Amino acid sequence: MTTYQITTELSTNRKQKTPAEQLGFGKIFTDHMFVMDYEDGKGWHNATITPYAPITLSPAAMVFHYGQAVFEGLKAYMTEDGEVQLFRPDRNFQRLNSSNARLCIPPIDEDFALEALKELLRVDREWVPTAPGTSLYIRPFIIATESYLGVNPAKSYKFMIIMSPVGSYYKEGINPVKILVEQQYVRAVVGGTGEAKTAGNYASSLKGSEIAAQQGYSQTLWLDGKENKYVEEVGSMNIFFKISGKVITPALNGSILPGITRDSMIEVLKSKNIPIEERAIAFEEVVEAAKNGTLEEAFGTGTAAVISPVGELKWLDDVISVNNGQIGEVTQMLYDTLTGIQYGKVADTFGWTVKI
């Protein structure tokens, strides 16, 4: 690990905390943020924890014009014994560097990034909410800041971490959602940026989400960009199907984001001796399983919700009901296991949690 000195400037105007029942997602931010700069020839430097505030960028900053922007998402949890812990944060910073490599952004020191996050959490520890199901959402990100209207990798960047207390994702219990299978647009293609967590991927997904919402559906199921045949992701989540007792999820192929929650679900399934396959899944296979009664469960996985059960899929003129619109047994087990580990209610036999 490279040795960096973190300069800390504490806020003199602390914000009032929002009651747990009023917490939404991503609208309230803590008192402080972490900022670090990069300049070509100088490297990463000027690591600071400073009061949360707007940043000033040139209108010609390259992030606005050529899209060099990557980010991560993870959470800090308050356990029942009053400890704050993270869930697999090392994997988030590993993936951030993978995204950096794809977008020609200089790599960060992953060990230092984790130490910086820990220090930021110590400064803003009081912001970690304690009500059941609540957590502190953490957003590390890197943007190109060089002022230059030329299509090249930038020579200067900012690495920042901001944090936001968030409410319980399922206030009234887990309810399966309705999904529209997108036919016209694609999220990503093999060889593109689908496996990187970059801003442009999410901007390009908005149209599909808008179409789904217009038809009364919660999310979009994305198919592959070449044949418009194979299942990729659902919304901004990885997708799983349970067919004939076996759980199947699309194999990572270069256009699918390697979800940390996805990987955790696979490990839990293996530990429970539940068959799990990572492979290409043609959506016609899902349709056929629904018709012959072997499609038992479907669910998406991601940081925000952990698990989002799927109760209905619409593909062309076919409307497919999954498990009578109810959450499945395996889906519930996975949700209970992972959230149990995250909040310290279930023993972490995998070594995934990091205490602050």
Rank of each mutant, 00 (worst) to 15 (best):
F240G: 03
K75S: 10
L121D: 04
E126A: 14
E126D: 15
V354T: 15
P275G: 02
R122C: 10
Y202C: 09
A131Y: 08
G150V: 14
A101C: 02
N46R: 10
S205T: 09
G191Q: 09
V186R: 15
M33R: 03
I55S: 05
T294M: 01
I28V: 15
K118S: 08
V63P: 01
L149C: 09
G235C: 12
D81A: 09
W222Q: 04
I138L: 13
G216C: 11
V287R: 14
G254D: 09
Q68I: 03
I108E: 06
G150I: 13
V123F: 06
E329P: 02
G225Q: 07
Y4W: 04
L338V: 11
K355S: 15
N323H: 11
N228K: 15
D263P: 00
F93S: 04
W222G: 06
A280Y: 12
P275S: 00
G200T: 01
A76E: 01
L295C: 06
N100C: 15
K229W: 07
A69E: 15
E80N: 14
D124A: 05
E296H: 04
N152A: 15
V181N: 13
V310C: 05
A251N: 12
V70F: 00
F71N: 07
V166G: 01
I55R: 13
Y77L: 10
G194C: 07
P309M: 12
N228D: 10
L96T: 15
G208L: 05
V63D: 00
I108Q: 04
M36C: 13
S205C: 12
T303D: 01
Q16D: 15
E195Y: 13
S11F: 06
I161F: 03
Q214Y: 11
R14G: 02
F71S: 09
Q5N: 15
P153G: 08
V84N: 13
Q215L: 14
D109P: 02
I274H: 10
I161D: 06
K314H: 10
L96Q: 11
K246P: 03
T56D: 11
N97Q: 08
L316K: 15
S255C: 13
W352A: 01
R125H: 14
F159H: 06
F25D: 08
A289H: 01
T353K: 07
L23G: 07
E233W: 01
D31C: 02
E297I: 10
L334I: 00
F283C: 05
S209H: 13
A280T: 14
E115P: 00
E72V: 09
